[in-house]
Design a protein around this nucleic acid. Structure first.
Length: 860
RNA sequence: GCGAGCGUGGCGAAACUGGUAGACGCAGCGGACUUAAAAUCCGUUCGCCCAAAAGGCGGUGCGGGUUCAACUCCCGCCGCUCGCACCA
């Protein structure tokens, strides 16, 4: 009897796998007709070290990758590093390390840690986005996009992060704060590089419908983000002026309920009037001081100022409406101006109530009475029937909208339009540690592309981080260059690309990561894409996934790839839950690592001081709260398999799992138990196709259970029900342990069950599986063995236990042949003694027999 | 405010298209082995009634409904989580 020693076993098998090269993805030619499966986990940012919390994401992808491989797929399961980004520069400033050295040292450390997990990854395809051999191609594509009109420059108000000293995309502003720094965002006007994401707005929205293997939640979030609304855009003529005010509305049917027009504080007209009207200038000033955080918005009252202008109603030139500046009008949405219809819009109602503007009802809710219906207290925002609206009267809202638009078009005042919430993606970042934008500014020629032969435009390495701002711009010589057009003195663009650009196409690069001439070979990309299974956190539901969808379309339209033709990079997406852990705080208020505490007499104490520890919320493992469990130490103590098994076993994969000592203990115990059983069996297991000796009783029952387990676990892995698959494995182990005896039948059944168990746990605990595989007399690898096939006859049930209910309450059980005739089952049920007892003195009204399921007798 | 999801034992959770609620794990309890502990193994565990067994009653956040049958479907509440946030 030998105890399972993971410290020897795990490294041994990893070494053998590597030597045999079993994790290498085959070329399309080598694959010879095998179907392909591209399994990918969102690649990590090399922040320093990996903790067990990170492992869940990779463990899930690895289960799928190994499962697909066992099922005969040519699997691509690569790993890379999202390696550009601010933390490297912060480290440079804090510790004086060069971002490059810091990043590569982290990659080195994290690669070693990831390898400890025994992931079936094709490491030959590893890439880092900060490597010039990677970003060179990104620059090439940037130029191609530029040529195609998908890249442009625009002077724009931008979100400026005062702490990180850089521009942020709208998507990176969370509650008015920088997503990374947490500092309140300011606005600045800057010349920006933009990606024309809106060129694909319609397609990006429509295609969401075809992403049936994405979580509904993510699809909804993307739809909302893109935010398409249909409506009308039209002009109001300003009284005593040639000028007009352009507005957007989704409800032109309520035009006869208009009582004012409102402009955004930074609308050009508002600003113009502010020059001569101090109260308007004051209003603008007041708006600028309003915070944009959640709390601020909630308590921000609507306010405005009368601009002193009048406009004519498009349907009735004699009807004049006042023009106001209002704080609730957004300059970035629509035209930055709207007409207020207080009767049928919440904001307009609040505004009109405050400033005593007319509130007119023009839409009658279904069932309401025209004579008594009022909107004085509450606006009605739903659909109904137009009234008080001249030629619209009597039309249902939908028709009234169409009719109103037709009228606006006839008058030449406006037209139907579509409005998007989605805006183009500003990608300029005033940082050093990012992909340089391959453009040159020439005083004579303007902004010109860097010549393709000069790519990559590489980052200089001799940079200083001694002052705030962009070190590239401060570099003494780097930006000096000759204009490729006129040959005169010119300057390089010093902005770098948002790191979300790097991650918007890395999955395509994995198809052909060593290609020097091109981003990737078209044929290879066509072969591997789309990613069949993508696994990552929900936090990327909008940003990364939207950008990747945009990029794939842009790459397709610039001729880099043909497939996926629909431009969808990720066929199936799974968003996994986090690993959470209790947080601990010392008496002095410092966060403590779990290992800095211990349980003593049921209370948790600080090891250093012996004082009680304050136990905080159970949160996502994070460095800042120190509620992390280091991977290396854990693997040394318990092994990678225990970590993998545990993070997949306790909770459904989409839900968070709490890392607990007892859970670890359970997984550890299971590993030992499996090994003990295999080891104790002490002889080779039968080959999968070996004929079984005749048997009945417990041995036969074990065979049945094992073959059913194959069916269950197979379906569970397919459907991402890892926790249920794990439970089935426990069940199988319990059954194997129960079967005693050393006769031929028992030995066969046990050996077969152990072989099946080994194969079923192999995607989850690959090291243990190999050790068992070898002990059972197989070679070379459990990891390369075909997935076990269930014998349909064994897995099938020939008898079923049927519950018998009387009036919906279970009273008895009977054994019946599977598929037994209804009449037979019915008789058996009615005659059952405990059923008869309940039927005494009652009349049977009805007997419901659901085949192989249940019998219900209705009596009274 | 709008939208989505969730709510099941002491805990994490199972339950396929409505068909035996609580699989499996943790913790607990009892036992075996041990001088003892750890480890391991075996048994047991939703609550209530009954001395116990047999058995019965109740039970999936709350209140109603549909159905022979509801964790599952419908209506109305309550609570939690996430996303969006003055989008005209």
């Amino acid at each position: 009897m030998s105890r399972y020693n993971h410290r020897e076993v795990e490294p041994k098998w990893r070494e053998r796998w590597t030597r045999a090269g079993i994790d290498r993805a085959l070329s399309p030619e080598e694959a010879r007709g095998k179907p392909k499966a591209y399994i990918l986990e969102m690649f990590p940012y090399p922040s320093g070290r990996i903790h067990v919390g990170h492992s869940r994401n990779y463990a899930m992808g690895d289960v799928i990758a190994r499962f697909r491989r066992a099922n005969g797929y040519n699997v691509l399961h690569p790993m890379g590093w999202d390696a550009f980004g601010l933390p490297a520069e912060n480290a440079a400033m804090e510790k004086g390390v060069h971002p490059k050295n810091w990043t590569y040292a982290n990659i080195e450390a994290m690669r070693g840690q990831l390898k400890l997990l025994g992931l079936a990854i094709d490491w030959e395809r590893e890439l880092a986005t900060c490597d010039p051999s990677y970003y060179k191609h990104q620059q090439t594509m940037f130029l191609a996009f530029w040529k195609k009109g998908l890249v442009y420059r625009k002077k724009q108000k931008v979100n400026w992060d005062p702490v990180d000293q850089t521009v942020l995309a709208n998507e990176q502003v969370v509650d008015g704060k920088g997503w990374r720094s947490g500092a309140p965002v300011e606005t600045r006007e800057l010349e920006q590089w933009m990606f024309r994401v809106t060129a694909y707005a319609d397609d990006l929205l429509d295609a969401i419908g075809s992403l049936d293997k994405w979580p509904d939640k993510v699809r909804l979030m993307q739809s909302n983000w893109i935010g398409k609304s249909h409506g009308a855009r039209f002009k109001f003529d300003i009284v005593d002026s040639e000028a007009k005010i352009d507005v957007f509305t989704t409800r032109p049917d309520t035009l006869f309920g208009a009582s004012f027009v409102a402009l955004a504080p930074d609308h050009p007209l508002t600003k113009e009037i502010a020059l001569r009207k101090p109260e308007v200038a004051q209003f603008i000033e007041a708006c600028a001081h309003l915070g944009t955080s959640e709390a601020d918005i909630e308590k921000a009252e609507k306010f405005g100022v009368d601009l002193g202008l009048k406009v004519r109603h498009p349907f009735d030139p004699s009807w004049e409406l006042p023009v106001w500046g209002a704080n609730f009008v957004l300059s970035q949405y629509g035209t930055g101006a709207l007409y207020g219809c207080p009767g049928h819009d919440e904001s307009d109602h609040a505004f009109a109530s405050k400033y005593k503007l007319p509130i007119l009802p023009v839409v009658l809710p279904p069932g309401a009475d025209e004579a008594t219906f009022s909107v004085a207290q509450e606006p009605f925002v739903g659909d109904g029937v137009a009234f008080n609206s001249k030629f619209l009267d009597g039309l249902p809202s939908r028709e009234a909208i169409a009719r109103a638009i037709a009228e606006l078009e006839k008058l030449g005042a406006g037209e139907a339009t579509t409005q998007w919430r989605l805006r183009d993606w500003g990608v300029s970042r005033q940082r050093y540690w990012g992909c340089p934008i391959p453009a040159i500014h020439c005083a004579k020629c303007g902004v010109v592309p860097a010549p393709e032969k000069d790519l990559p435009v590489a980052l200089p390495e001799d940079v200083k981080f001694d002052k705030p701002g962009n070190p590239l711009a401060h570099h003494p010589t780097w930006k000096q260059v000759d204009c490729p057009q006129c040959g005169g003195k010119a300057e390089r663009e010093t902005d770098t690309l948002d790191t979300f650009v790097d991650s918007a196409w890395y999955f395509a690069r994995f198809a052909d990561p060593q290609n020097e001439a091109r981003p990737f070979d078209k044929k290879l990309a066509n072969y591997w894409l789309p990613v069949d299974q993508y696994v990552g956190g929900v936090e990327h539901a909008v940003l990364h996934l939207l950008y990747a969808r945009f990029f794939t379309r842009a790459m397709r339209d610039c001729g880099y790839l043909d497939s996926p033709a629909d431009g969808e990079p990720f066929k199936s997406l799974f968003t996994q839950g986090m690993v959470v852990h209790e947080t601990y705080k010392s008496a002095s208020g410092q966060w403590l690592l779990p290992e800095e505490t211990e349980l003593k007499d049921g209370a948790r104490i600080d090891v250093a001081t012996g004082q009680a520890v304050e136990i905080g919320a159970i949160e996502k493992m994070s460095k800042s709260k120190k509620n992390v469990v280091d991977l290396d130490a854990f693997v040394t103590d318990f092994g990678a398999d225990v970590a993998r098994w545990f993070v997949l076993s306790d909770s459904p994969p989409e839900r968070d799992v709490e890392w607990t000592a007892s859970g670890v203990k359970g997984a550890w115990g299971f590993v030992q138990r499996v090994w003990t059983l295999v080891d104790a069996h002490g002889r080779p297991a039968p080959e999968p196709d070996e004929a079984a000796p005749a048997m009945q009783g417990e041995a036969h029952a074990l065979r049945q259970l094992a073959h059913r387990a194959i069916q269950h676990v197979t379906a569970d892995i397919e459907h991402f029900r890892f926790n249920v698959a794990v439970a089935k494995c426990y069940e199988l182990v319990n059954a194997i342990a129960k079967l005693k005896g050393d006769d031929e039948a028992a030995v066969f059944a046990r050996g077969e069950a152990l072989r099946i168990l080994t194969q079923l746990i192999s995607p989850f605990m690959p090291h243990l599986a190999e050790e068992c595989w070898e002990r059972l007399g197989f070679e070379p690898f459990a990891a390369s063995a075909p997935w076990p096939a269930a014998d349909p006859e064994l897995a099938a049930r020939n008898t079923v236990t049927l519950p018998i209910q009387v009036n919906g309450k279970k009273r008895a059980e009977i054994e019946a042949a599977k598929g037994a005739a209804e009449a037979e089952v019915r008789e058996q049920a009615l005659q059952h003694p405990s059923v008869a007892q309940f039927l005494a003195g009652q009349t049977v009204r009805k007997v419901i027999v659901v085949q192989d399921r249940i019998v219900n007798i209705v009596a009274n």
